[in-house]
Amino acid sequence: MTEFTPVASLIGGALIGLSAVLLMALEGRIAGISGIAARLLPPYHKGGVLSRLGFVLGLVLAPLLDALVSGAPVVQTVSSNLPLMLIAGLLVGFGSVYGSGCTSGHGVCGLARLSPRSLVATLVFMAVAIATVFVVRHLA
């Protein structure tokens, strides 16, 4: 069980949306994390690696800022099934780049731009993820 947190989730979601809007307003880019992370890897094109590194560094440092401001520890439960996490990581990395986006690029920025491609991608990854959890938790 995890606690239902509609208010915190709505506020956190709004901050994610605000970051996406500001990235578009300032740099003219979509806030897709898989795209930003993948551009840290070769083959490189058109530069911009340093700015992507900045964004990723911000993501990594964010819990520290949150802890300083809120004073509360971040609660997190990560699976300790390491082969499962290895496979999950490979699939998430491969699929998000091959399908040109993840939860942020398609699920937030794409939907906000009313992109039909992003709507299809979001419906597909949601459906597959829900089916996966159903199989793992209720059938396996």
Partner: peptide, 16 residues
């Protein structure tokens, strides 16, 4: 790509 991503997301609970 979206299906492969969804499978990994459902297994680990992490997206990028």
């Amino acid at each position: 790509g979206a299906a492969i991503f969804g499978l990994g997301w459902g297994l680990g609970g992490f997206c990028p």
